[in-house]
């Protein structure tokens, strides 16, 4: 991730200075900036767009809301907005479109929802499919995905934690993702 000339905080804090939500924003930034960048990096790569640019765009959008306090899950808002920023940028690079994104959804629509990241990223039916398939995964596959996606472990750290080989961790991840993708594809075809 490339360094920025000024911190994202300094670039958007003036938007908050006029409101009574500066403390909320400050805490959100401190708590979530690093994690958000890391999650974007581990899902979409280094870019372009740079994950930091996407995170910054998300914070700017959050700051620009009329009443940020109405967002019940600010982390989900930031994740979703940053993700949409990345996909919009990538699509504009190669003029693609997808059924798995909500790039057209505006921050105003997002803000009033009781958001969770998954509900926004996938539709409700697709979300149910994912939960059903996760329940059928082997315990090893669940642990690998839990450690990598929820706890943010690298594969090497998972190896150290569990004693499993790197190849095994890699393979279990691939098998689990294949199962999930196949189930989503079947769900799409049945609709």
């Amino acid at each position: 991730m490339s360094g920025k000339s000024s911190s994202p905080l300094s670039q958007v804090e003036h938007l908050f200075a006029r409101s009574n939500t500066a403390a909320t924003f400050d805490k959100l930034y401190r708590d979530y900036w690093g994690e958000l960048c890391a999650r974007l990096y581990r899902t979409f790569g280094k870019g372009p767009p740079d994950p930091e640019d996407a995170a910054q765009a998300a914070f700017v959008r959050f700051a620009a809301l009329d009443d940020p306090n109405r967002v019940r899950d600010p982390r989900a808002f930031l994740l979703t907005t940053a993700r949409n920023f990345i996909l919009d940028q990538k699509r504009s690079q190669n003029r693609s479109s997808s059924r798995f994104t909500i790039g057209s959804q505006s921050p105003a629509e997002i803000e009033i929802d009781d958001l969770t990241p998954e509900r926004v990223i996938l539709g409700r039916e697709q979300l149910e499919i994912v939960e059903q398939v996760v329940a059928t995964l082997t315990q090893k596959q669940k642990i690998v995905l839990n450690l990598s996606r929820i706890k943010g472990y690298t594969y090497t750290e998972i190896c150290n934690e569990t004693g499993w080989s790197y190849g095994d961790v890699y393979r279990q991840t691939s098998i689990a993702l294949a199962k999930l993708a196949e189930a989503l594809d079947r769900g799409d075809r049945q609709r």
Binding site: R39, R42, T43, F44, L79, R83, L87, F100, T101, P117, E118, I121, L122, Q126, L127, V130, V134, L145, R149, I150, L177, L180, A181, L184
Partner: peptide, 8 residues
């Protein structure tokens, strides 16, 4: 990408 983020 959607699957990975959903799993979180």
């Amino acid at each position: 990408a959607a699957i990975l983020q959903t799993l979180e």
